[in-house]
Each structure stands twice: as structure tokens, then as C-alpha cells.
Write a protein that binds this DNA or RNA. Structure first.
Length: 490
RNA sequence: GGGCCCGUAGCUCAGCCAGGUAGAGCGGCGGGCUUUUAACCCGUAGGUCCCGGGUUCAAAUCCCGGCGGGCCCGCCA
């Protein structure tokens, strides 16, 4: 292993001795992106390009090699008979896989019809001391290498690169979509004295300047609502949330959410917004809103074009599980909790029990096509407004696609007295051992006391949306640098 | 938190069950080759068998502990 590095360090040293800078500041001349050379191939034209050497095929006096620039590959050839002998020798002696080089030459098609640059000049741009771990276009198989050294994964595999291109285009298109709807993108604190807006354990940190314990945010919700109180009518934020919980196929402790809040809207408006956003962004990023998602090992067509089905959580129970949860006694419900080993932290609560049971037996198993599950039991939703026509329900929806929970949204609770009472209930749950209970946020309640208009809010999991868009079933595949245990530098 | 599986050359893996000199392909290096594209042909170097301990005449192999990774379950309203 150190052998290759040592050999290449020796090459680097010899280059410097010869007066060749292996890491020059400038290129011989301006280059054309390889993408453009490929897009409008012009045999006979003279081009200058730069890129990483990803393949070398030697045939004695003729050598073919591949350059990759910004994910685009082009073949080059260098022929001893056609170029300065020293240049040919320079290539043979000093250019290795992984190096960045500049070349210029004329474009032609080989006998096999491959677009190729007949190289006349080579400039070394950056000497690589390590070669790529696998041939370009091949997959690194070791997941540990893929996640720890993602740059290698992306460098060598265009399909991996494509996933991240889709991810970042998706974020860009969500921004454009929200702006086009009149929303303003705002920023809220990541470091917070009280966390809130979701049920999750937080990361703690120490603020030296204030000598107190603060938290990394677990959601964007409570500060965005403060913007609504402040008089901004439509705001959104795209940012990282941090939840101190386990890492698995659909959870990463650090993940990306888009949250939006709109004055004078309710959860019905937000459902319309959500389905339009997901389909519009899909069309702009993927060119289609018909995607395929692997479900239980089988590729399933998923249609992202609106309207999405809207079904109450009780109806969903009846339809998919054949269970009339609504009329179930608490004792019977507890039997189901035992049967599916569902535990409720902080003591039994009917609403929470129903929602957890739903996650366990309905959501991930049956909701493959986009589905809004609506009207949750009120005790499970301490930041949502009670339902306009049923006191036991909250105006809340969750969006499921491919069995994944993608979004959570409410007609927002704007009655400060009810909010305060919900926080008090959360405090009780916390005291009973529910580590994910909301802490009482007095400052937020005071903000509501100043008056928040009727508001509709949305939280959309960007990572999971990208999973749906790219057809991958692990969140690690869509997070560039997923969380892995740190390792001592070898 | 529980269970299962994995860790051997730069990469992919065999060898482990049944203990006895560390193996292959790709890649590297050297040589050959002027139309290849996972080029090809010949030669060659390359190892803390994840780490530590134990059993044994002898451990990559068996046992224990640890580290790292993957998957499943729990948890994630």
C-alpha cells in the first residue's frame, strides 16, 4: 500500500528535479469542458481540455487514455510517430492513473468510432500520489470505503455521482418552487436554548460564552412560527436537523428538512402545495413524475403526479389492517401494542398508541403510492390545531410514499392557552421517562400570545424525497457523507 | 438495547468447517505490441491474515475480549 505512494512520491520528486512543477498554478491555455466537446463533436477541430486520467491502454508506440472532467469522459490518444519524442516519453514516465492533466490536440474518430483527441501537448496539473481504488465506472463494493471516503465513490462511479446531482438539483428546484409560490427563504438558529418542534432526543452542547448547555435543533418549526408571528406571511427554510437517535436505513442523526409556514392557510392548502411541489420538482429534476422504487426487493412504479390519495388514519386502519381502531377499547388496543411489541415511552396514551401502531402495521407496509394520511388523534400532536369538526382529532397529515414517511404537517396550533396546556402534558410525559417529550417552551408560548394568524405548516424530509427520486432504499445513499464512527488516522 | 453476518495483497475474493511454509484474478512494477476502450501477451514484486489475549508442539484457521463495518429487530409520535 505504501509502496504505490512511495513510488509516486519519488516520481513527484524527480519531476521537481527536472524543473516540472507537479502542481502548477495555471494551465497552458483556457480549456473547453469535456462535456461541450462531447455534446458537439467536431472532427478536425483543435481543442484544449483538462481532466483526471482514469484509464490507460498502451500499444507500444500508440497509447489510448481516458480523461474525466466534471463527470464526463473522453478518450485521448498519443502516438510516438506524431508527437515530439520527449513528450511521449514524459507521458510514459510521469503520467499515472489519477493524475489531473491538460492536453490539447485535434479531434477525430477511431476505427471503432470513438470520439478521440489526438494529443499534441500534455501538461501535468496535479500529480496523484494514490490511484483510484477501482477502474472508472466500476463500483467500490466495500460499504465502509464508500461512506468514509465518498469522494472515491463519486469519483469512480457515474451512477453514484448522478444520485448527488439529483440531490442538489432537487434542493435547488425546491427553492425555486417555493420562491415562485411567494415564500421567502429565511434562516433560524441551529444552536438553541430549548429544542422543540418534534419528538426526539437532542444533541447537547456547551456555550462557553454563556457558560450554559444548549441544544442543536431537532426541527425548524418553532422559530419559523416566530417569523409568522413577526408578520412574514410565507416563509421556508431548508436546513439540517439533528436528532440523537439511531442510525439505520432511513435515519441519519443529521438530516435535511424543508419546512414552510403560510399564514391564512390550513392543512388542506398544504396538501395541495405538497403534491404540487413533489411532482413539479420531480419533472424538473428527473424529467418525469413517474418513478420506480424498490419495495421488498421488487421495483414498483410510483406515480408522483397529483392528486394524492387523502385518507384518515382511522380509515387507513380499516382498509389496510381490517381494524376498527376507533371503537377499540383501551384494553384491546393494549393487546395490539403487545402483539406488535409497540412500546409507549412516558406511559400509555391512546393517541400515541394509535399513531405508533399505525407506523408499525400500516404506513410502511401498504402506503406505496403517494398517500396523505390525515386527522391524527389529538394527543399525539402537541403542536397541531384541534380538528374543526372533531375534538378528539388534530388537523395533521403525514405523507407516505414507498412506505416512507416523507412529510408531516398541520393546521398550526395558534391558541397560546391550548399550546401551554399541551406543553404541560409533554412535561408530565417527560417526567415519566419519555426522553422525546417536548420541553416547555415559554418563549414560544409568549410569542403565540402576541397573536399568530391561522397558519398551515409543512415539514418535508429532503433525504427521503431524494431516495424516492433516485430509487434507492438507504438514506446513506443520498447523504454525501453519512455518519460513521470516527477512526484514528492510519 | 437484542440478534445474525463480515474483516486475508491497492481492489474483489479463495483458504477457516477438518490447525501444519500465505493463494488467485484485477491493479502495480519491468518487458513486448500503432486503433484499444474491464485491451492483450510474457515476467515480477507486493501481507501487522483488524487488534489483544488464550488453547496447542504448531493458529489466518479453534476459544475469549475489543475495534470497525453490514443486515435484521427494537426505537425513530
Amino acid at each position: 500500500m505504501s509502496n504505490e505512494v512511495e513510488l509516486r512520491k519519488e516520481v513527484r520528486r524527480r519531476l521537481i528535479e527536472l524543473g516540472v512543477n507537479p502542481y502548477p498554478h495555471t494551465l497552458k491555455s483556457k480549456v473547453t469542458p469535456i462535456r461541450e466537446v462531447i455534446q458537439s463533436p467536431t472532427p478536425g477541430s483543435y481543442v484544449s481540455v483538462a481532466g483526471r486520467v482514469v484509464g490507460i491502454r498502451r500499444h507500444g508506440a500508440l497509447v489510448f487514455f481516458d480523461l474525466v472532467d466534471d463527470g464526463q469522459k473522453i478518450q485521448c490518444s498519443i502516438s510516438r510517430g506524431d508527437v515530439d519524442k520527449e513528450l511521449f516519453n514524459f507521458f510514459e514516465k510521469f503520467v499515472d492513473l489519477g493524475d489531473y492533466i491538460y492536453v490539447d490536440g485535434s479531434v477525430y474518430y477511431t476505427k471503432k468510432g470513438e470520439l478521440t483527441i489526438a494529443v499534441n501537448y500534455i501538461q501535468l496539473l496535479a500529480k496523484a500520489l494514490r490511484s483510484p481504488p477501482v477502474k472508472w465506472g466500476h463500483r467500490i463494493l466495500d460499504p465502509e470505503v464508500r461512506y468514509r471516503k465518498r469522494y472515491l465513490d463519486i469519483m469512480t462511479n457515474p451512477q453514484v455521482r448522478r444520485i448527488f446531482e439529483i440531490r442538489f438539483k432537487t434542493i435547488e428546484e425546491i427553492r425555486k418552487f417555493m420562491w415562485s409560490k411567494g415564500y421567502m427563504e429565511v434562516e433560524t438558529p441551529i444552536l438553541q436554548p430549548i429544542y422543540g418542534g418534534a419528538a426526539a432526543r437532542p444533541f447537547k452542547t456547551h456555550i462557553w460564552a454563556l457558560d450554559t448547555e444548549w441544544y442543536l435543533r431537532i426541527s425548524l418549526e418553532l422559530y419559523l412560527k416566530r417569523f409568522i408571528v413577526a408578520g412574514f406571511n410565507k416563509v421556508f427554510e431548508i436546513g439540517k436537523n439533528f436528532r440523537n437517535e439511531d442510525i439505520d436505513i432511513e435515519h441519519n442523526p443529521e438530516f435535511t428538512m424543508m419546512e414552510s409556514y403560510e399564514a391564512y392557510a390550513d392543512y388542506n392548502d398544504i396538501m395541495n402545495l405538497t403534491e404540487e411541489l413533489i411532482s413539479t420538482v420531480a419533472r424538473r429534476v428527473l424529467g418525469t413524475d413517474a418513478v420506480e422504487y424498490p419495495i421488498n426487493g421488487e421495483t414498483t412504479k410510483v406515480n408522483l403526479s397529483p392528486p394524492y390519495r387523502r385518507i384518515s388514519i382511522y380509515e387507513a386502519f380499516r382498509e389496510f389492517a381490517g381494524l376498527d381502531v376507533e371503537s377499540l377499547s383501551d384494553d384491546r388496543l393494549k393487546e395490539y401494542l403487545d402483539k406488535y411489541s409497540v412500546k409507549i415511552a412516558g406511559g400509555y396514551d391512546r393517541g400515541r398508541a394509535i399513531v405508533k401502531l399505525f407506523d408499525r402495521i400500516v404506513g410502511r407496509n401498504y402506503l406505496m403510492q403517494p398517500t396523505f394520511v390525515i386527522d391524527f388523534p389529538i394527543s399525539s400532536s402537541p403542536l397541531a390545531k384541534p380538528h374543526r369538526s372533531r375534538a378528539d382529532l388534530a388537523e395533521r397529515f403525514e405523507l407516505y410514499i414507498g412506505g416512507l414517511e416523507l412529510a408531516n404537517a398541520y393546521t398550526e396550533l395558534n391558541d397560546p392557552e391550548i399550546q401551554a396546556s399541551f406543553f404541560r402534558e409533554e412535561e408530565v410525559r417527560g417526567a415519566r421517562g419519555d426522553l422525546e417529550a417536548h420541553p416547555f417552551d415559554w418563549d414560544f408560548v409568549e410569542a403565540l400570545e402576541h397573536g399568530m394568524p391561522p397558519t398551515g405548516g409543512l415539514g418535508l424530509g429532503i433525504d427521503r424525497l431524494v431516495m424516492i427520486y433516485t430509487g434507492v432504499s438507504s438514506i446513506k445513499e443520498v447523504i454525501p457523507f453519512p455518519m460513521v464512527k470516527s477512526k484514528e488516522f492510519e
